[in-house]
């Protein structure tokens, strides 16, 4: 049993992208979740998928800053994974009731809904970036994801100076925004 402060430190570490915290949470919870999935019609690959998705839900919740720890990390992850797995089973029509739920579960519907929204946005962004083609893709990734400076980018990509790189980046950015927002507006309009 972990004390409250330990768990809080772990969550803070997770939000700050500290790999050790993520590893600790992973190590302590993976086997439980794996047992849940494998005992309910899943394979170990399914378990890995579901567990990692639950970790992402936890991570994004931790990052949002509004996370108040009203249950243990273990309980939270278990509840999310259980919900996600039920959902997947239902989608595949292989639904069989996952045992009598005597286990401790907290309501996580809101979190999962928020997660699915972000998931859709993530996919939109991924599609949009993949649509760009080279060198735009690498350029955008270098500047916005790896947060490199324009000088570095100019040197790496072989532009004569930072201004040239900036021009190119501007063109790429305009295309990316156009693709992204087309889908974004369509996606949100449907709902």
């Amino acid at each position: 049993m972990k004390s409250q402060t330990d768990e809080k430190a772990l969550l803070e570490g997770l939000a700050a992208n500290d790999k050790r915290s993520a590893e600790t949470i992973y190590k302590e919870n993976f086997n439980t979740i794996q047992a849940l999935i494998v005992n309910n019609n899943g394979s170990s690959d399914d378990a890995r998928d579901i567990f990692q998705e639950s970790m992402i839900v936890l991570y994004e919740k931790a990052c949002s800053g509004s996370f108040e720890l009203n249950c243990q990390i273990k309980t939270f992850l278990y509840s999310v994974a259980r919900r996600l797995w039920l959902k997947r089973l239902q989608q595949q029509n292989r639904f069989t009731s996952p045992g009598d739920s005597m286990e401790v579960v907290v309501p996580v519907e809101d979190d999962i809904e928020a997660h699915e929204q972000r998931d859709a946005e993530y996919e939109m962004m991924e599609n949009a970036i993949n649509h760009l083609g080279e060198p735009c893709k690498s350029l955008i990734e270098a500047y916005y994801l790896q947060k490199k400076s324009m000088q570095e980018i100019a040197a790496n990509f072989g532009y004569t100076n930072a201004d040239n790189a900036k021009n190119q980046k501007y063109k790429c950015l305009m295309r990316l925004k156009k693709i992204f927002f087309t889908h974004y507006k369509n996606g949100n309009g449907d709902e």
Partner: peptide
Amino acid sequence: LQQINQFGQRKSFKSSLNDIH
């Protein structure tokens, strides 16, 4: 910017999860 930052964060978190595994 908010979208692309979230995208970047999640992407790197995903790959670190795979590493950890």
